[in-house]
């Protein structure tokens, strides 16, 4: 699985990089960014789901890799 942030929807609430700091970071203006290759390891799956379900803007998606 991979995580994605829609930059059009992200307004920098920072819930993702607070709840899943191994998957998300902040840029210089506080917008969320996916760290590394965006792949979610099994031990990060719960954190990834928390980030998705706590983003007020619904800017984060968890997608199955094809």
């Amino acid at each position: 699985m991979k995580v994605q942030i829609d930059p059009q929807r992200c307004h920098g609430h920072g819930r993702c990089y607070t709840l899943a700091p191994a998957l998300f970071g902040e840029d210089d203006e506080g917008y969320g960014q996916v760290i590394g290759d965006s792949a979610v390891s099994p031990d990060q799956e719960h954190a990834a789901r928390l980030a998705v379900s706590n983003c007020p803007e619904r800017a984060i998606d968890l997608v199955e890799e094809a």
């Binding site: 307004h11 928390l50 007020p56």
Partner: peptide, 12 residues
């Protein structure tokens, strides 16, 4: 656990 509250507003 699931809390998409809008205490700080939404959007721009």
């Amino acid at each position: 656990e699931v809390n998409r509250h809008v205490a700080f507003g939404l959007g721009i």
